[in-house]
Design a protein around this nucleic acid. Structure first.
Lengths: 216, 216, 216, 216
DNA sequence: CATGAATGAGGGTTCATTCAT
DNA sequence: TATGAATGAACCCTCATTCAT
């Protein structure tokens, strides 16, 4: 009977909100601007969100929920780390999936650092999730004997997390998609050397190459 | 142009502004709050700054100028990297100086991530400076033969920068001063293994220890 | 102009509007609330009323029209005031009818005091009508010799009107129906003593009782 | 040092607010209009009141506090009701004082009937205060034997309160000051006849006159 | 006719900035 | 110079009204 709800409106508003928040922050983004750039009126914004803050939280928490799904490392297959080669392959594949996800959500990702005050928990939640994923990976790698047993502690986790995090935020600030695979290979190479047992290091394709090159 | 009436007032205002901006962000900090906590009137604020934005920029750009001094690696002494031991010592000393500086300025440091929109250049400037320092260190280390020649620039720099940056932001969020030396030793250990030539790795105190342990 | 589609809808809307206006006032009542509690859509409201204000006026003016019918004293029967006893009986009967009407319309009655600004004429109209009824009653009673001839019009009318008006607004604010007959008998007693000629006063049932009591 | 606060501003705002609220009600009155008609900016309004509601409550509660002082009948002098003549004199004097007060505050008085919803307590408070004054007067008059002992009950109080209340609200709606003394004499005459003992009725100046007149 | 999604004017409130003293 | 009262532009949100279906 009635005029049907524009099915695109909410999605358009969420996209516009994400863009506006990313560009100007929660305070800087104006509801009218969000609505206008979504092609609807200011009033329509309030048909979908109770307040600007709610829209912000909707954007951020949706992303965090997706992060939870994407980062969850509980399903590391039993045989993933049985050999150096399979370890490196699984590691890279996992990283690629994660970074493809982050690339797809780079606009939201870019907003995280500015979450402070009452929204600090959003950034904290992201960091907690990502950190946990790192820690679980390191623990599993050590348990399986592919990382040295003396690798440990909060600092190593910070370094690993920080390094990958930097890649993620570099992602967030790029207009063109960077060569993710080569970034992640380089990162793998770096932290394999830093934390891996000699057999894992030996399994690095680069290593044999460069070793040979140096030998020659 | 003319000398402001009370230079103490300006200093008090800058301190108060830094604290307020750190606590609430540029939008969240109120001019009245800044003035009051500096012990002067709101009107006095405008005797020293043309606008709230100018005060914000003053705080941030002062910090960035100080960063430029602190990060500047152009003065690496000629003999700093001549032996593995002196390399590791210089590396650690430099890092300690840098992180002491960041600790002293942690309030301002903590504001950087929230710089977006028209202020994005502030964060970008910080990152550029810090990044440049990392790149120059890596280049110099490679030139002096303490880092492997196949260590690749951009991505390795990102990883190194990211890792140290994470330490820096951990710093910014702590009330109590963390054990900087042990953090930085761990980082040095990690990236020496990742990027260093075998002789540099061999010079790591930890390595010999862990090697012995493994032997036993 | 044309017959509205669903006359039940209009009635339901009027009931809902009356309740909403009584509960929250003209500004506080929301069109959406009225429509929803009438079981129709917001759009349907505008099929029956050009605006919220029109609905308000419809409710109020319907009530005022009903008041005009109920208060109209032009039909005082010729023989109603011929004897003290018939006077008191007619007076009480008339009051009972009027107050039963007010009780039935207490929701609308309760809205009257809040009519101000451009709607002040509604309250004024009610007061004018009620006042006129009082004045005509007093005049007729004086003409028939049951009220003292020195009872003065304007102020006496205000007092009489005010007293009965208070009863009416007490009515409007009660959830349970108060004992109208006893209220009105008391009022009759009071104003008979105040305005009545001695023979009318003597006809009061209470008077003889209290007179006897005093005698004993 | 600083620009001195305009000492008239708050008073001007209160006057303007009183007028605006009286004219349009709490919702209908616009802050901008209040400020403008007080000759200050909208912002200045908020230097003196935290919100429009607070200004409204300030106006109303100031009035109610003044009512409490004006209506308080606890100080009926011991000898005020010793003779019929002194009783009538005290009664009239008291009423005159009260109605002069109401006349001076007629603008606020006129707003009371529209207080509903969360502000209903304001009207209720006024009614409670005024009612209590009436009840105490009646009780004292009965105790002193100037009102009949069979006068009693809530209804008589309602009638008396309603009648005087009507005078009060007539006051509130008049541009020119009405003849208060003659109104109040008439009211005294009316309720002396209604509730007074014969000796009090006999003391009415009108009564003797009219009695004589009738006798003659 | 009926629906309820969409509109957008309106107003309360905040606060950066100005200015009279 | 220093003060803080005063200003008014800006913006979030509400809700009466319109209109596409």
């Amino acid at each position: 009977m009635s005029r049907p709800a524009d099915p695109n409106a909410k999605i358009a508003l969420l996209r516009a909100a994400e863009a506006a928040f990313a560009a100007h922050g929660l305070d800087g983004a104006k509801v009218d601007e969000i609505a206008r750039s979504a092609g609807v009126s200011k009033g329509a914004f309030y048909l979908h969100f109770a307040s600007k803050e709610e829209a912000f939280l909707h954007v951020m928490e949706s992303f965090l929920a997706a992060c939870a799904r994407s980062f969850d490392p509980s399903d590391i297959p039993a045989d993933a780390l049985t050999t150096p080669a399979s370890t490196l392959e699984f590691w890279l594949t996992r990283d690629l999936e994660t970074f493809e996800f982050l690339w797809a959500n780079r606009a939201t990702l870019a907003m995280l650092p500015s979450c402070s005050g009452p929204y600090g928990y959003l950034l904290a939640s992201y960091r907690t999730q990502a950190h946990a994923a790192v820690v679980r990976w390191v623990d599993e790698a050590k348990r399986c004997g592919v990382f040295r047993s003396d690798v440990d502690g909060p600092v190593a986790s910070m370094l690993l997390f920080g390094a990958y995090n930097e890649l993620a935020f570099q992602l967030a600030s790029r207009a063109k998609k960077p060569p993710l695979r080569s970034w992640l290979l380089e990162a793998q190479n770096t932290f394999t050397r830093a934390f891996g047992v000699p057999t894992l290091i030996a399994a690095l394709p680069h290593v044999s190459r460069s070793t040979k090159a140096r030998k020659g």
